[in-house]
């Protein structure tokens, strides 16, 4: 209720207290420009945070639900151990599908290193089994490893954790860094609005003295400055956010060129997230200006 009242007071304003502060062109432009620039950067940081979070979740989910079994055995035992491994997998709870890769698929995997014409049937290449875990079951990987050792001694489980973990960690750290960037941008904006408010307060020192002399309370004086700076920050941030959203929307789509950078952006309701940036900018400007105004006023008689 109090926040609503405050928001209404900010929007509607007090025509009397608004008039007592003379218009200050330079600080007005500075605050609006700073807010717009910061909101633009915040929009990108938010998009990066959302995208990297999405990527981390997807990698973690997709890779954790699959594993590969590699069977290395002499040529005459390879088929036997493969069948034995498949039999073990069929009776293992939590496995949705287990499928041995055929020669063409294995050739395709090795093609980047050995070329397309690799005579894979004549080489002692291990047999690979692609295993998909059931999404609603918890697979006991250690138990499976022990059973495979007993039934197919040449079978080795690769649950992708070796290379999955750094990838997921990298994506998570990217998300963390993006969030940190958002915090830094917010802090920088608060600092700049505070400086602009200080400049305006110093420039209007004689106005404040007159107001104090005729019995104005600090709250009345602060309100005149706070509303002005809050609305400037809000307006500037709205423009910056819209510009940032357009820039993010104009990034190439992932359908065109697959990759992380082309996946940067918001999806669905995620496009509503940047709407919080101007609101946050307004709150930051309100707090920063009020703090600066009251602190300056306390130094005056």
């Amino acid at each position: 209720m109090k926040a609503t009242t405050l928001a209404m007071a900010l929007m509607v304003g007090d025509p009397h207290s608004d008039r007592v502060v003379p218009p200050t062109g330079f600080t007005a432009q500075l605050t609006s420009f700073t807010s717009a620039a910061m909101a633009f950067l915040a929009c990108f940081a938010l998009a990066l945070s959302v995208s990297s979070g999405r990527l981390a979740d997807r990698w973690a989910q997709e890779l954790s639900q699959s594993l590969t079994i590699r069977i290395s055995a002499p040529g005459d035992q390879l088929a036997v151990q493969t069948q034995a491994a498949l039999a073990v997998l069929e009776t293992t709870p939590g496995i949705e599908e287990a499928r041995p890769l055929d020669a063409d698929e294995q050739r395709a995997l090795l093609a980047p290193w050995f070329g397309q014409s690799l005579p894979i049937e004549e080489l002692p290449v291990p047999q690979l089994i692609d295993v998909i875990e059931a999404s609603d079951a918890d697979l006991d990987v250690d138990g499976l490893r022990l059973r495979l050792q007993a039934e197919a001694p040449g079978a080795v489980i690769d649950d992708h954790s070796r290379w999955r973990r750094p990838l997921v960690q990298a994506a998570q750290r990217l998300r963390g860094l993006s969030a940190l960037s958002l915090i830094l941008i917010t802090g920088a904006m608060a600092a700049m609005v505070t400086l602009a408010a200080h400049a305006a307060l110093s420039a209007n020192r004689s106005v404040i003295e007159v107001l104090r002399q005729v019995g104005a309370r600090d709250d009345y004086i602060a309100k005149a400055f706070v509303r002005r700076f809050t609305l400037r920050a809000l307006g500037g941030a709205a423009v910056g956010t819209i510009a940032g959203m357009i820039a993010v929307a104009l990034m190439p789509s992932s359908e065109a060129t697959a990759g992380f950078l082309t996946d940067l952006g918001f999806r669905g309701l995620g496009w509503l997230l940047p709407a919080t940036i101007p609101i946050l900018a307004g709150i930051v400007a309100f707090a920063a200006t009020r703090f600066a105004a009251l602190r300056t006023l306390r130094t005056m008689a």
């Binding site: 009397h16 207290s17 008039r19 007592v20 003379p22 218009p23 004689s206 106005v207 003295e209 007159v210 107001l211 005729v214 019995g215 104005a216 309370r217 009345y220």
Partner: peptide
């Protein structure tokens, strides 16, 4: 000292406003 951007009447009425 006065608020130079306000008229004489507004300056005189300032104590009422605050």
């Amino acid at each position: 000292q006065f608020l130079d951007h306000l008229s004489v009447a507004d300056n005189v009425a300032l104590p009422l406003q605050v």
